[in-house]
Design a protein around this nucleic acid. Structure first.
Lengths: 345, 345
DNA sequence: TTGTAAGCGTTATCAC
DNA sequence: GTGATAACGCTTACAA
């Protein structure tokens, strides 16, 4: 079960432990000849340095921790992780992914676990926009840099990489108005705060044109349970139709909401886009495969992950704490809008 | 930057290091009184045990490594990872996920990296069905248990958890024949071997009813590049139509193939299922949202991940190597078939 | 009930 | 150019 160690090599080759260590680390102190002997032996016997021991000694692990809600929940997060992974390959560090499952206590446990493992830095998409703020600030100051991504807790003083959701939502809504669809059903999650930027962007677009905001056109549905979500969406639409104020467009605030809305409309035999146009935030490649193909606001998920890790590395490499705080910045990446058939009249 | 250590607590509280250690581990040797003092102090000062040091000492890490192709590629893998995660929560171990990106050298690097980190066991979905076989056998014998999932390399002697793809494909094909669709276009990846169980199952269903296997109805397309994939699928269909041997059904061998086929048919204005029925392997929840909703063979992805980890833990906990080999088993989980509108006439 | 000391596999300082 | 040795933070006999 045991791996071969430096000590084993030393014994076998009749060198001292320190000679082996230096040779394996290509130290200039060791002659080319003995270095070769040692390295050959190591390769032949599948020597793999024990990183626990190494990290314990040198004081860092060359690994960074990533905490997300749950990466099984959406292709969006998968793309963010892809970007993180790409950056980690470039800088040559490992990543350890943990999931908070939208739970504040879990989030704290993840943080502790990562610190116990000695990560050099942490990439965090917080559970909520105010969770564990003090604790995270403490960690960032005393232990290792923490960089926030996607969800940007304003109480945390550090570098944050997010998306300009406000502008994305505004543009999408504007697009619907442009094609003369003004009775827009806005569907979002029931746990988003009211200052959510997607809601704000939506409202702003209406306000710009003095279109009144009708609360009956705002629906807040469960994000965890798709059955509940479907029921809520379906009932909202049917209810409005009954009252003779049927919407002629739907704006979905998330990936799942948007794609499922399309499925529900098909089931209800409501024609898209003829009767109801559909647009929404969606990072899935499947937007293309849907029928009709789905117009969508795409978030630069991969870029976000990539940038977040790069910025974290900068903070890690910046030795002095005082200088570090001057590096803190908040970056909002721009979304892009893809017009497809679901909003093409 | 530094965490508080046992030594710090010892100094502050005027106890010895070992007393602190024992108290923190709830040893019966320590009086309730001093234990309380120590634990309170530790909590107040956010003491977090250094797991590097602990693991180095005790010889195991309570963590297991997982190597997959690339979990961004499909919801299938995300579901497998979800199952692994669920099981890891139950047994109380951490998981470290690595990606081989379908590359044999990468796979070896992942294995080495995991062993360097001292994982207690490895869960592996091999790059190909013959990659690194000797090396993996060596690791499994000398270092830590390796359990295979999804892709089952026959050359590796260990526990393997897979899916009965053969039966799944057979049933799906049978279903198409049952609805009287016998000109079935089988679309699969160009890198699957010929003894791939999905192909075999498909062929067997035809054979059972003496339906000849027409090679023009077998298309092998790129899985990496969706543009190439789309072109290949599109051209195949159009070519057959031109020759007046248009298929009246499509069987897609993967998630992506199946959903994209639906998109392509919509684009070509070919009616589904009226002109061409569609079924395929697909683990995406979006099957429901598609229009028409997609009939699919679903693999028990989450169960597979869950079971794989549980079996790995069994192997880890089985101390003696000789007894361990007697635990090796190969489990093939059954698929389920969901008939939806894309094959409902 | 508490303390001493050795050792896990490295690296790094210093001596030879 | 090579070798002793201490130290990283922890656990664990064994001693007191």
């Amino acid at each position: 079960m045991a791996n071969i160690t430096i000590k084993d090599i030393a014994k076998a080759l009749n060198f001292s432990v320190s000679t082996i260590s230096k040779a394996l680390n290509n130290s200039y102190e060791i002659s080319a000849e003995t270095r070769k002997i040692i390295i050959d032996y190591a390769n032949q016997h599948n020597y793999r340095p024990n990183r626990l021991a190494k990290s314990l000694k040198i004081g860092h692990t060359n690994s960074i921790g990533v905490i997300v809600n749950s990466f099984f929940s959406s292709t969006f997060l998968a793309q963010v992780l892809d970007g993180i992974h790409k950056a980690s390959n470039e800088v040559g560090c490992d990543i350890i992914i943990m999931q908070s499952y939208e739970n504040v206590a879990n989030e704290k446990a993840c943080l502790d676990s990562l610190i116990s493992k000695g990560v050099d830095g942490i990439l965090l998409s917080p559970v909520s926009e105010t969770s564990n703020s003090d604790y995270i600030n403490l960690i960032n100051e005393k232990h290792c840099p923490v960089v926030l991504f996607d969800r940007l807790n304003p109480e945390i003083k550090t570098t944050k990489i997010g998306v300009n959701e406000y502008k994305g939502a505004l543009e999408a809504t504007q697009h619907l108005i442009d094609i003369n669809r003004k009775r827009i059903l806005f569907i979002t999650g029931d746990k988003f705060g009211d200052n959510n930027q997607r809601i704000q962007g939506f409202k702003k677009a209406l306000k710009n044109l003095d279109i009144p905001i009708n609360p009956r056109y705002m629906v807040f549905c469960s994000l965890e349970n798709t059955d509940e979500m479907d029921a809520k969406i379906s009932n909202s639409i049917l209810g409005l139709i009954e009252q003779n104020i049927a919407p002629n467009a739907i704006f979905g605030a998330t990936d799942v909401i948007t794609t499922r809305s399309l499925g529900i409309l098909a089931k209800l035999k409501i024609k898209v886009p003829d009767e109801i146009a559909v647009i929404g935030f969606a990072n899935t490649d499947i937007a293309f495969s849907l029928n009709p193909s789905l117009s969508a606001i795409r978030q630069p998920a991969k870029d976000m992950g990539y940038l977040a890790l790069k910025k974290l590395i900068e903070l890690i490499e910046c030795a002095s704490n005082t200088k570090r705080t001057s590096l803190y910045e908040t970056i909002l990446l721009e979304t892009s809008i893809n017009i497809r058939k679901s909003t093409t009249l």
